[in-house]
């Protein structure tokens, strides 16, 4: 409870900054509309205003600031506009509606979860292989690193086109892009975790004449759990990004990525921002779900306090 005040202060500061930023961003359009409605604006006329910077124009017309927060297609929508749009498209629309963010969110979420599942399993298996075989360490790790240096925006269209040509479309290509982004943090975290036992821990195992398999199951695997969860959190956020990026190049009609895309086609900035916020909220919920799993698992293992 004691942290409530600082948290609220930070939120208030962000909102205040956002409202202030809306003024110069939207002032040109607000001035034009005010002039048409017969409200005096300085300077008069479109041409001189066009020459002017947004901040001086805003400074000279404080009486039309309120108009910058209520436009239909602002350059930067105000927080309450985004909040209202979010409310209308999640709670008030039926979930089957093409304009419901719940509907689009589910489309993206399902691809995210499938991709994350594939990526996490592949990541863990690769890590196990890398830790057990020097040959795999030398041969797989460079490719895993190389795969992440390629911009996902460049490779996503290729994956979609290639899969489309063999008749695979819809959820699967997006899930593959998700998996492509999420396996890497899992590999890195899991390798680190499986290698986290100290030389002394391993020596102890040797004094008991433990087999490699026993050392793995009783020492390496449990020791890697905290590392695994840390990388799963990164992985699931990356999965969501992957699913959205997978929706962009096809001009998909469904999904949060499609909402972003169609919003930018039609200049619907409020729609873009509400889709962005929906994405951020979804990511936060997913990471929180992993964190809850982590707490429960560590508690069951006796490590959680």
């Amino acid at each position: 409870m004691r942290s409530l005040l600082p948290v609220l202060t930070v939120v208030a500061a962000i909102l205040a900054f956002w409202y202030v930023a809306c003024i110069p961003m939207n002032i040109h359009f607000a001035a034009m509309q005010a002039e048409r409605a017969g409200v005096p604006v300085t300077p008069e006329g479109m041409a001189p205003r066009r020459e002017m910077g947004a901040i001086p124009l805003a400074a000279r017309n404080p009486h039309i600031w309120a108009e910058t927060w209520v436009q239909d297609k602002p350059r930067l929508p105000a927080p309450h506009q985004v909040a209202i749009e979010l409310w209308q498209t999640t709670v008030e629309k039926k979930v089957t509606s093409k304009r419901s963010l719940v509907f689009h969110g589910w489309v993206t979420l399902s691809a995210t979860l499938v991709g994350f599942g594939i990526g996490a399993v592949a990541g863990v298996l690769l890590a196990v292989g890398i830790v057990h075989s020097r040959a795999m360490d030398m041969s797989v790790m460079p490719w895993a690193i190389a795969s992440q240096t390629i911009p996902i925006l460049a490779i996503a269209p290729m994956i979609i086109v290639v899969l489309n040509s063999v008749g695979v479309q819809g959820l699967v290509p997006k899930a593959i892009i998700s998996a492509y982004l999420s396996f890497f943090p899992v590999v890195v975290g899991m390798v680190k975790g499986l290698r986290s036992p100290t030389p002394m821990d391993l020596d102890l195992m040797r004094t008991w004449n433990a087999s490699r398999d026993q050392t793995f199951r009783k020492l390496r695997l449990p020791a890697s759990v905290p590392y695994l969860f840390a990388s799963l959190k990164i992985g699931i956020a990356a999965s969501l990004v992957g699913a959205i990026v997978g929706e962009l190049p096809t001009g998909a009609a469904r999904g949060l990525g499609a909402r972003l895309l169609s919003g930018s086609y039609y200049g619907q900035t409020v729609q873009i921002w509400s889709a962005l916020f929906a994405t951020a909220i979804l990511a936060a919920v997913l990471v929180a779900a992993i964190a809850a799993m982590e707490r429960a698992t560590l508690k069951r293992m006796g490590v959680g306090r």
Binding site: T198, M200, L204, T207, A210, K218, G302, V303
Partner: peptide, 28 residues
């Protein structure tokens, strides 16, 4: 299994109880 070895650090696994730690070599 001619010897038991004790290191400078106790090296107990944090995810096992004391009994679980002592049971570890026996399981192996």
């Amino acid at each position: 299994r001619a010897y038991g070895y004790v290191f400078q650090a106790a090296g107990l696994y944090p995810w096992r109880t004391i009994a679980g730690n002592i049971r570890l070599p026996l399981e192996i």
